[in-house]
Design a protein around this nucleic acid. Structure first.
Lengths: 129, 129
DNA sequence: CTTTTATTTCGATATTTCTAGAAACATCGT
DNA sequence: ACGATGTTTCTAGAAATATCGAAATAAAAG
């Protein structure tokens, strides 16, 4: 029990790149499929069938995910098996969660409450109610 | 204790669009800034100063985030104040986490170990070495 | 009502990303 | 060695996204 969720916190530019990698339907499908198949993984052909896209397009997306270290690959004979890189994915959720957990959900409901008012110097946006 | 984190689970195309919205350095910076400032929020001018980008570019990114419901806005006199939409952001982390939590971290370390062999029909991808 | 401040809209350009066929490469079975 | 199968590389056109100045809009201040 030494390795619960010990992180290297991820930096913002990297997080943005990784979010971008997930920001495509085909690639997010791949990642979800690999997470569900974890730790067995899936070979490229299986992914291709699941996604119904041309092989070259699939490879392109797999490269993009691999470049961001969100998945890994290994050759098994004629097949290439892909795996979700769960640690990298967890880092990503934690990037948001770290900031998000302390934020309670006031904002949406009471927008109006956010009141401007009480201005000091003109030009300085004060919040306060 | 009624409203812990009860979700509408988010569907994949929407999740992909939202990840894409986060997949840009400027926009991720905006979101992080708004989360840190939550629930006070930030007016556009404050965000612009923090990011050091032209106003029109900032608006463009704010529109993109708003279109994906990741942030909200409200006018306060001459100012427009922006807020993180924490629920939508949480949904997004949960989209990954839901699949990710059950996936323990075997894959990276023992790629080679990937599993049993026993090939049946040629053409069926079996794992194992 | 004119000016000043805050922000958005418009428009045009630059850049990146996506898509997918064809050809190449890798490995297995015979 | 040959043929079949699985996957990647190459290529190029199409589509989407990013950038930002200039003009337009909104609201307060003078």
């Amino acid at each position: 029990m030494s390795e619960s969720t010990h992180d290297d916190p991820i930096d913002l530019p990297r997080a943005a790149d990784r979010f971008a990698a997930l920001g495509h339907q085909a690639r997010l499908s791949i990642v979800r499929c690999l997470l569900r198949a974890h730790p067995v993984g899936r070979v490229a052909g299986e992914l291709q069938e699941e996604l119904s896209i041309p092989a070259s397009t699939l490879t392109h997306h797999l490269d993009a995910l691999r470049h961001e270290a969100l998945i890994t690959q290994t050759r098994q004979g004629r097949f290439v098996r892909y795996f979700a890189h769960t640690h990298a994915l967890r880092q990503l959720t934690e990037f948001l969660y770290a900031e998000c957990c302390s934020a309670s959900d006031h904002s949406i409901a009471d927008h109006r409450a956010a009141g401007p008012s009480v201005k000091h110097h003109p030009g300085l946006p004060i919040l306060q109610d």
